[in-house]
């Protein structure tokens, strides 16, 4: 079956991709980085965090859920969009308790990396300092609700052989929080625990007793900003 290729434009650059690909992936194929938080390659997109917002023919759309079409004009690195992204990051920072200095994900955290990329110095919004707990009752994984940004990556990505998810949301509205299925989690393998920690963009899921093993200098974003591997 021959694939249909379409042409489109991102920030004036002529690009080409298979028809139907999501903008985020099509951009990546063309060496253009669009930031993501809730999206993760290989999983059905959710469109939850809006950090991937771009202007599509002049209208804001989420790049992780919008398929690319022929002749599309996409604006990505423009002041208006960067402003939106920075605002979202600031909102996420004030909504939880993100104390980077003592977080073991620091240096490998996507939220922190994006804050650096978009030059957040201090959030413009008042901190909410919610009172949230650290749940360490599981033998392998710690859930630190202070840091969870409710992206659902763990719910969507960490499943057993019957495709049942280990994680789910519980409670509603502003009280919603991530929950581990205890019965399943007790049988969780070390590999899956590692994958859970890795799939979480922040430091909300932590493998017990292994923190800070990666020296400074070898962490994901120690040398180059997030997205550098894509940008050409």
């Amino acid at each position: 079956m021959s694939k249909n290729f379409v042409e489109f434009i991102i920030d004036g650059k002529k690009c080409m991709s298979e028809e139907g690909k999501y903008i985020i992936d099509a951009a990546k194929d063309n060496g253009v980085y669009i930031p993501t938080l809730c999206n993760i390659e290989g999983l059905k997109p959710k469109g939850a965090c809006r950090i991937c917002s771009v202007l599509v023919n002049g209208r804001p759309m989420t790049a992780c859920t919008t398929p690319v079409t022929s002749g599309m004009e996409i604006e990505n690195n423009i002041a208006q969009i960067e402003g939106i992204r920075k605002t979202i990051i600031e909102a996420l920072f004030v909504e939880g308790n993100h104390f980077c200095p003592s977080c073991e994900k620091s240096g490998s955290c996507e939220l922190q990396a994006l804050a650096y990329k978009y030059k957040m110095l201090v959030p413009r919004f008042p901190f909410m300092f919610p009172i949230r707990e650290v749940d360490a009752s599981n033998p392998k994984l710690i859930k630190d609700h202070n840091r969870c940004i409710l992206c659902k990556r763990c719910i969507r990505g960490i499943r057993d052989e019957n495709d049942r998810s280990y994680f789910a949301f519980k409670k509603r509205g502003h009280e919603v929080e991530i929950n581990i299925n205890h019965e399943m989690a007790n049988k969780m393998t070390d590999r899956l625990a590692r994958e859970s920690m890795d799939i979480c963009p922040v430091g909300a899921l932590l493998i017990k007793e292994s923190g800070f093993r990666t020296p400074i200098g070898q962490r994901k974003y120690d040398h180059l900003p997030i997205g550098s591997d894509i940008e050409k």
Partner: peptide
């Protein structure tokens, strides 16, 4: 208090 023990060396040095 309430933090995982392995965080202490990094937290308390602040």
């Amino acid at each position: 208090q309430g933090r995982p023990y392995w965080e202490a060396p990094v937290l308390v040095q602040r």
